[in-house]
Design a protein around this nucleic acid. Structure first.
Lengths: 150, 150
DNA sequence: GAAGATTGCGCAATGG
DNA sequence: TCCATTGCGCAATCTT
């Protein structure tokens, strides 16, 4: 639905304005034709002298011109698409990293807990020795390795 | 918060029209004033010729118009700046998360190693019990944790 | 319903 | 010279 209706007119206070109409399709194609003009309001006209060959405003009707414009428009679209894609990828990367982070955090929590249990066992054992109680038992050991699953 | 927009149409090769303001090198300042209404191909000119109130092309000379344009231009600039900022933030977030990840990974590595050492100690102890050797001794423990690395 | 925010689009300048 | 990027303005749409 973005059929670009109403063609445009030009302002006048700020600068230039032109209307380009599709060159093919339906005929009709009014064009402002050219621009030497000047700047009543401060436009930056062409530097004095140079204007014969290169730096001329370029005929906006010329096929050359239209072709170049079209090419550039394509390039622009392509570039923007690429840019957008990249941005999206970056966003995705963030989520990916966040997930990874959570996983790691969970793992740390688990390891920490395991470690804590083992350390406690050691302490207990140490005390047992100190207090001259019976040494660690196989049963205890087994119980421990139980939740060490990973 | 939702982006339901999507012109969907608008193929790509549409060279339509455009107006340009800005004082570029090319002058051109005359004012075409009215719309030629030359719809390309589609033939969708002004609806029912009613152009008295709303649907009129809006006088581009009007102060009203110019003012609106200017405001919009500001808004656009602002919006784009914001957008750019956000993108940058996202990029920064990625790096931040990557760092965090490395930290966590390192921590995991450490914990894992510690755990491994302790487990080995337990095993050793278990074997000692099984083989009916002397129980774990404080000295042994100390010695062990010392060069647990190699 | 108007004012601001977004978004697609084309132009032109500029970079590679 | 050509394509890629980027800033900019216009207009159509959302969103407020």
């Amino acid at each position: 639905m973005s059929k670009l209706s109403q063609p445009a007119t030009t302002p006048g206070v700020n600068g230039i304005s032109v209307i380009h109409t599709q060159a093919h399709a339906s005929g009709l194609q009014q064009v402002p034709q050219l621009v030497p003009a000047g700047p009543g309001g401060g436009g930056k006209a062409v530097p004095p002298s140079k204007q014969s060959k290169k730096s001329s405003p370029m005929d906006r009707n010329s096929d050359e011109y239209r072709q170049r414009r079209e090419r550039n428009n394509m390039a622009v679209k392509k570039s923007r698409l690429k840019s957008k894609q990249k941005a999206q990828d970056t966003l995705q990367r963030v989520n990916q990293l966040k997930e990874e982070n959570e996983r790691l955090e969970a793992k740390i929590k688990l390891l920490t807990k395991e470690l804590s249990v083992l350390k406690d066992l050691f302490l207990e054992h140490a005390h047992s020795l100190a207090d001259n109680v019976q040494p660690i038992s196989t049963e205890t050991t087994a119980t421990n390795s139980d939740n060490a699953g990973q």
